[in-house]
């Protein structure tokens, strides 16, 4: 360590040795104890440090809260901006990186027409027209049991 390097350190980082580079701190501190010029440089830098310390920011709790609220509301808006179709597409089409984990999604979507067909089919079979007892009797009356027997023979 020499005076030139010490001057550069103090003029750049100030008098607080904690601000100095860790590699040079011990050497620079030792040098400052042995050199009167170094001591004088430290005093000058300390004066500026004291001035800089005067610039304290006012309480900014409200600002911080406003920032956080703003970010969270931007988040909500962003998720609302996505339309239903876009959200469905995002859900159906997996991220390329995560394809293996989300392969079930397109498979399930591909099965959906089949499932829909089965559901419609089941609904139709349940809704078949049931005859009342009177309608059943009148239908029987139109059949000709004798001719049926002859045709069988």
């Amino acid at each position: 360590m020499n005076l030139e390097r010490f001057k550069l350190i103090v003029e750049s980082y100030g008098a607080d040795s904690q601000q100095w580079s860790g590699d040079e701190r011990v050497e620079a501190l030792e040098f400052s104890r042995t050199s009167s010029d170094a001591m004088s440089l430290l005093d000058q830098a300390a004066e500026l440090d004291q001035h800089l310390a005067l610039f304290e920011l006012p309480n900014s709790e409200l600002s911080v809260r406003r920032i956080e609220m703003g970010i969270l509301s931007a988040f909500k808006q962003e998720s609302l901006k996505q339309g239903t179709l876009e959200r469905l597409l995002n859900w159906v089409l997996p991220d390329f990186d995560d394809l293996a984990h989300t392969l079930w999604r397109p498979t399930l979507v591909a099965c959906m027409p089949l499932l829909l067909g089965v559901a419609i089919g089941l609904m139709l079979t349940n809704n078949t027209y049931e005859l009342s007892s009177d309608e059943e009797l009148s239908l029987l009356a139109f059949t000709d049991p004798v001719s049926e027997e002859w045709s069988n023979e």
Partner: peptide
């Protein structure tokens, strides 16, 4: 948030702008 706000506040010297920039 506090630390980023302090940095931007000292850089811009304006609380309102600093809030926007921190956000």
């Amino acid at each position: 948030t506090q630390r980023i706000f302090n940095y931007v506040r000292r850089m811009t010297s304006n609380s309102i702008e600093a809030e926007d920039l921190a956000q």
